[in-house]
Amino acid sequence: MSKEILAVENIELNVSVKDKEEAIRKTGQILVDKGYVEPSYIEKMLEREELTTTYMGNFVAIPHGTEDAKKAVIESGLSIVQVPEGVSFNGEIVKVLIGIAGKGDEHLEILSQIAIVCSEEENVNQIVEAKSAAEILNLFNEVN
């Protein structure tokens, strides 16, 4: 039985992190804990960030693994970490981290759904100000 790509348990609110690396590790650890990826995927997320930033604008970063990290993906999944105080990604402030693990080419469809939600500043503000994981989940489900 395949899991939900995004479930309430994959969303953490009011997280405080000291830096970009801790933020990425936190985002990746949710994917590991929920069984979407092997632990090695987190290192590949950090490697990806070294190659090119995953900051997307609008206070959003989308950490994900490198191309060769695909073998560490068990099932497609998302994690969302809300950081209301923000964390610096090379000088850009990130308040919403969306971790992605895509099996095969599923990450492309997942990315497009995230892009639709996060392209609207109003939606990003709703995520940053959400008081429950369900609020965030509903926002993403409305796109489908």
Score class of each variant (00 low, 15 high):
Gln82Cys: 08
Ser40Ala: 15
Ile114Lys: 09
Ala7Gln: 05
Pro39Arg: 12
Lys18Trp: 00
Met56Gln: 15
Tyr55Ser: 10
Pro63Tyr: 09
Thr53Leu: 12
Lys131Trp: 01
Lys95Gln: 12
Gly65Arg: 01
Gly65Tyr: 01
Tyr36Arg: 06
Ile116Gln: 12
Gly99Phe: 07
Glu106Asp: 15
Thr53Asp: 12
Asn125His: 09
Glu129Gly: 07
Leu31Thr: 01
Glu85Met: 00
Leu46Phe: 05
Ser88His: 03
Val32Met: 07
Ala23Gly: 04
Gln126Asp: 14
Ile116Arg: 13
Thr53Cys: 12
Glu22Tyr: 09
Asn141Gln: 15
Gly35Asp: 00
Ala101Gln: 04
Val81His: 08
Val96Ile: 10
Gly28His: 04
Val124Thr: 07
Glu43Ile: 00
Gly57Trp: 02
Lys3Pro: 10
Glu122Gly: 01
Ile80Pro: 07
Met45Leu: 03
Val8Gly: 08
Gln113Cys: 01
Glu129Cys: 09
Phe59Arg: 02
Ala134Gln: 14
Asn125Ala: 10
Tyr55Gly: 10
Glu129Phe: 07
Ile24Asn: 00
Ala134Gly: 06
Glu38Asn: 14
Lys20Phe: 02
Ser76Thr: 11
Ser132Lys: 14
Asp105Cys: 00
Leu13Thr: 01
Ala133Pro: 07
Ile100Val: 15
Glu21Ile: 07
Asn123Glu: 13
Cys118Trp: 05
Val124Ser: 08
Met56His: 10
Ala101Thr: 02
Val143Arg: 10
Lys44Met: 13
Pro84Gly: 09
Gly28Arg: 09
Leu111Trp: 07
Glu67His: 10
Val143Ala: 11
Ile98Trp: 06
Lys70Cys: 05
Lys26Arg: 15
Asn58Trp: 09
Glu120Ile: 05
Ser16Arg: 13
Ile127Asp: 04
Glu43His: 00
Ile11Pro: 04
Leu137Asp: 13
Ala101Tyr: 04
Leu51Ser: 09
Ile136Trp: 08
Ala69Tyr: 05
Val81Thr: 08
Thr53Gln: 11
Ser16Cys: 07
Met45Lys: 07
Pro84Phe: 03
Leu97Met: 14
Asn10Met: 10
Gln113Gly: 13
Gly65Lys: 04
Asn144Ser: 15
